[in-house]
């Protein structure tokens, strides 16, 4: 047979992946390592029988989504994160937090607000773990590696938060051995009224299997509200209560939350620009999560209330959290 190998030398060398087609420019390093790196975007996603669980799951929960564009590989993360950029920037953040902890240790600052921290900070490791699980779900259902990698880095951000909270929990346990820091949080997370909106939000997300529903529920509703209440508003309260260390840690963790918002807003703007029908689809999904959002704000705004008599009322906290959430949604081209 003629295999045509004689043509081998006639082709000019490739400058980049043929998958880029006629890009008209040199792709960035970020694009080189991300483009078309999800091989399951085909009629039968997996190379197994069409009726197998994994194929049915992806077809039903990912490919049948109404929130859709022609090609999700057109999406770009505004941060253009690659693995190398991620570990470099996060190492900088972690180095900063180590320095903060060291400084407070050297200054010999006494803990100032154990009640507040036991109620508002240490139970948040459960919240962060819930957000971590859901971010990992977004990664595996994402319709492009441009989306999936953002979700993977977001997953790791939450493990970071879990570990930083655990660190503080253990420090507080050493300082106050009688208070059982480290063991009281589960009860608070499961039963304290102020945590119940957030817990309900996480648990509802754990059964939201359609990728667009999970994306909207997590990245546009539950997570931004959770970050407002348990990082930003938490930091405000922590400063009032003179536990500046915890405020600084929360501020730094909030940088990760802002990265999540940047790519989430870029994703919705991209999808709306690609197909304006997506605007309505997104609003329908947000409307579905809206009652839960109200519940999260209603309960979560009371987390620190008792510790700030005459300072920050739950109404003020709620108004600040909702205001910030609305601004984020506006950034995303949406309305709450």
């Amino acid at each position: 047979m003629d295999t045509g190998n004689s043509e081998e030398l006639r082709r000019p060398p490739l400058k980049t992946w043929s998958a880029f087609g006629n890009l008209g420019r040199r792709p960035s390093e970020y694009e080189i390592v991300t483009h078309q790196m999800n091989h399951t975007l085909r009629d039968k996603p997996l190379e197994i029988g069409p009726d197998r669980h994994g194929n049915r799951w992806l077809v039903r929960h990912r490919d049948a989504a109404k929130f859709a564009v022609k090609d999700w590989d057109g999406f770009r993360d505004p941060d253009q994160l690659t693995y190398r950029k991620y570990v470099t920037s996060q190492d900088n953040s972690e180095t900063y937090l180590d320095a903060v902890l060291q400084e407070f240790d050297q200054l010999g600052r006494a803990e100032t607000a154990p009640d507040f921290l036991q109620a508002c900070l240490t139970p948040s490791r459960y919240l962060a773990h819930g957000l971590q699980m859901m971010s990992a779900y977004l990664q595996q259902l994402a319709p492009s590696a441009y989306v999936g990698n953002c979700a993977a880095f977001q997953t790791a951000d939450h493990l970071r938060r879990v570990q930083r909270v655990a660190y503080r929990t253990k420090q507080l346990d050493r300082t106050y051995p009688g208070r059982s820091f480290g063991t009281t949080e589960r009860r608070a997370w499961e039963q304290a009224p102020a945590w119940q909106g957030l817990r309900k939000g996480i648990e509802r997300l754990l059964v939201a299997f359609d990728w667009d529903d999970a994306f909207v529920g997590l990245n546009l509703v539950v997570k931004p509200l959770a970050d407002e209440l348990t990082l930003r508003q938490f930091a405000v309260a922590a400063r009032h209560l003179n536990t500046e260390l915890d405020a600084l840690v929360a501020d730094n963790l909030f940088l990760d939350a802002e990265r999540s918002r940047r790519w989430s807003a870029a994703l919705t703007r991209f999808a709306i620009a690609e197909d304006s029908v997506n605007l309505g689809r997104l609003h329908t999904l947000i409307a579905k999560w809206r009652p839960l959002a109200d519940e999260i704000v209603e309960t979560g705004s009371r987390l620190s209330e008792a510790f700030l008599p005459g300072l920050n009322s739950s109404d003020q906290i709620a108004a600040a959290a909702v205001g910030a959430w609305r601004s984020f949604l506006e950034e995303a081209g949406l309305q709450a």
């Binding site: 693995y83 991620y86 570990v87 773990h129 971590q132 699980m133 990992a136 990664q139 993977a152 880095f153 997953t155 790791a156 493990l159 879990v162």
Partner: peptide, 9 residues
Amino acid sequence: RNISVFGML
């Protein structure tokens, strides 16, 4: 679940 996050990275 936690240890898998490092694996993802």
